[in-house]
């Protein structure tokens, strides 16, 4: 069962259409949600949390209808907002305990789980100091902790790496990976950095102007494409001619010394090596071409030479 499934989800605010006929399935695991600001991301989150009714269509979260089961959904869904949302004058422990109770956990359970969760996100002695003195990295961890403390089945993370330095981003991404892989909690992450999403997502959904653009599994999207990219020091066009004479399918581009050879048969690699040796040129690169997520957003032509 997919974690989230929407069917023709539409939301209109007067003259503005925030979401239009969104039909998509987000599986369990880590799903990356890509879209610029204003693309309908926040509206989608509000609908998924059961806080906003769709104008038409439906959304099912963990098997529950967003329209009728809002409260039940919010019991087992966690949300980490992008914006600043922490009061400065309480400690992380106090705040998370409070939030845990606001999710319906009895007080003693809330305390236990708070201690555990803070440990899992990596806050140790700092947790007793007021949040006002925390660094951005620590604050993001607190935000993540409040989304996890009540043991949700799914968490919605809105730009979790915002404002973090590269090391902090890596830490946060690793944390997110753990949430999915080790804690067994489904994750929906938004980001506008494709590279990050590529690293941790199992599935990518992209939205633009409220309309679904793509929904692909990253394994497929970043799989090995069936070409090998070759780059030689000199005499590229001759090499291409010889290979084509041998029956290989070669695609050339702007650079005369770079070309792609389709691998229909492993022997093509031997052919390439042979040609290069015969011509007495240097071989700079012979590499399996991988798709990149950015190809989703590029044209066909660009993709082949990416």
């Amino acid at each position: 069962m997919p974690a989230i499934a929407t069917q023709g989800l539409t939301r209109v605010f007067g003259p503005v259409t925030a979401l239009s006929q969104l039909t998509v399935e987000m599986p369990t695991g880590v799903v990356g949600l890509v879209g610029a600001n204003g693309a309908g991301k926040s509206t989608l989150i509000k609908i998924l949390l059961g806080l906003l009714p769709p104008t038409s269509g439906s959304a099912t979260i963990l098997g529950m209808n967003s329209l009728t089961d809002g409260l039940k959904i919010r019991e087992i869904v966690g949300y980490m907002p992008e914006s600043e949302c922490l009061p400065p004058d309480v400690s992380a422990t106090e705040f998370i305990v409070h939030m845990a109770r606001m999710s319906g956990l009895p007080t003693s359970v809330a305390r236990e789980r708070t201690a555990d969760t803070l440990r899992h996100v990596g806050l140790y002695e700092e947790r007793y100091r007021p949040i006002g003195g925390y660094s951005t990295g620590m604050r993001q961890r607190v935000k993540l902790a409040q989304a996890l403390v009540h043991d949700p089945k799914l968490v919605l993370l809105d730009e979790p790496t915002n404002g973090l330095d590269p090391a902090g981003r890596d830490d946060m991404l690793e944390l997110i990976r753990r949430v999915s892989a080790d804690f067994n909690i489904s994750v929906v992450v938004t980001s506008h950095l494709l590279g990050e999403l590529e690293r941790i997502s199992d599935h990518i959904v992209s939205i633009e102007g409220g309309v679904l653009q793509h929904s692909t599994s990253t394994a497929a999207a970043t799989d090995f494409s069936g070409v090998v990219l070759v780059e030689v020091t000199d005499r590229g066009p001759e090499a291409v001619d010889r290979l084509q004479a041998m029956g290989a399918t070669v695609t050339t581009g702007a650079q005369p010394n770079s070309f792609a050879v389709a691998i229909n048969d492993e022997r093509v690699l031997d052919d390439v090596r042979g040609v290069v040796v015969d011509l007495e040129v240097g071989l700079i690169r012979m590499q399996h071409g991988r798709h990149h997520l950015s190809e989703m957003f590029a044209t066909q032509q660009e993709a082949l030479h990416g």
Partner: peptide
Amino acid sequence: HGVMPLYLSRP
């Protein structure tokens, strides 16, 4: 301090 989203996302 913008804490309301955290309340609203709760049951």
